[in-house]
Structures are given as structure tokens and as C-alpha cells.
């Protein structure tokens, strides 16, 4: 059963902050969405052993040194940059 505690847990995992009103709306939306997702639980898995499907990877490229993009271009889209580095709030 979906409830606001589960929504808060998922919000934490998703790293998204919500106001109380937004949380209430999200709980309501997720309750309705999970109701249709429950359909997968009806799928009969007892008939055979299913391999968990994986994406086919083709030829992996050779592990060779290549020049990367210039640092200035990589940091150009960041909002807070100092000495060609991303600035973040103090962590420790």
C-alpha cells in the first residue's frame, strides 16, 4: 500500500525535495500509478525459468588513450566554477 512514508522514502532516494502539499499530491499520483504497475505481479513466472533480459553489447571500443574535451568547455555549463573546478557546499 502506498502512503506518505513511502513517498518520503522514495523522495530521499530520488534526491528531490517536496513541500507537504507536493508530497500529498505525489502520494495520490503514485497510488494510482502503482495500481496499474501491479499488473506485472500477475505474470505467471512458474511456467519456465526466465533469464533476466540484458542489453546486447556489441563491439566494445579499444581501450586507447584519447584526448578529452578541454576543461573550460566541460565546466562552461556549470553555474559555480572556480579554477576550472566545480564549486560545491562544504561536505566535511
Amino acid at each position: 500500500m502506498f502512503n506518505s512514508d513511502l513517498t518520503k522514502h522514495l523522495a530521499e532516494l530520488s534526491k528531490i525535495s517536496f513541500t507537504d502539499d507536493e508530497l500529498e499530491q505525489m502520494t495520490s499520483d503514485m497510488t494510482n500509478i502503482i495500481a496499474i504497475m501491479d499488473k506485472v505481479c500477475d505474470f505467471d513466472t512458474s511456467k519456465k525459468a526466465y533469464a533476466l533480459d540484458a542489453v546486447d553489447y556489441n563491439d566494445l571500443r579499444a581501450d586507447e588513450h584519447k584526448d578529452s574535451y578541454p576543461t573550460e568547455k566541460i565546466v562552461a555549463n556549470a553555474k559555480n566554477v572556480k579554477n576550472n573546478s566545480f564549486v560545491v557546499p562544504k561536505v566535511v
Binding site: T7, L13, I33, I34
Partner: peptide, 25 residues
């Protein structure tokens, strides 16, 4: 936001087997 929340629901402990694994089957 809904899709991210749904995705984390499908992947999180306690729901992964019933939802994500079944979806891949």
C-alpha cells in the same frame, strides 16, 4: 519527478523482485 519516483520504487529493496525483475521477465 513521477517517473524518477516510480523508477526508484521499482528498484528499491522489497519491491525489486516483484516489479523490476518481473518486468524484465
Amino acid at each position: 519527478k513521477r517517473r524518477i519516483m516510480l523508477g526508484n520504487y521499482a528498484l528499491c529493496s522489497g519491491y525489486y523482485d516483484a516489479y523490476y525483475k518481473n518486468a524484465t521477465r
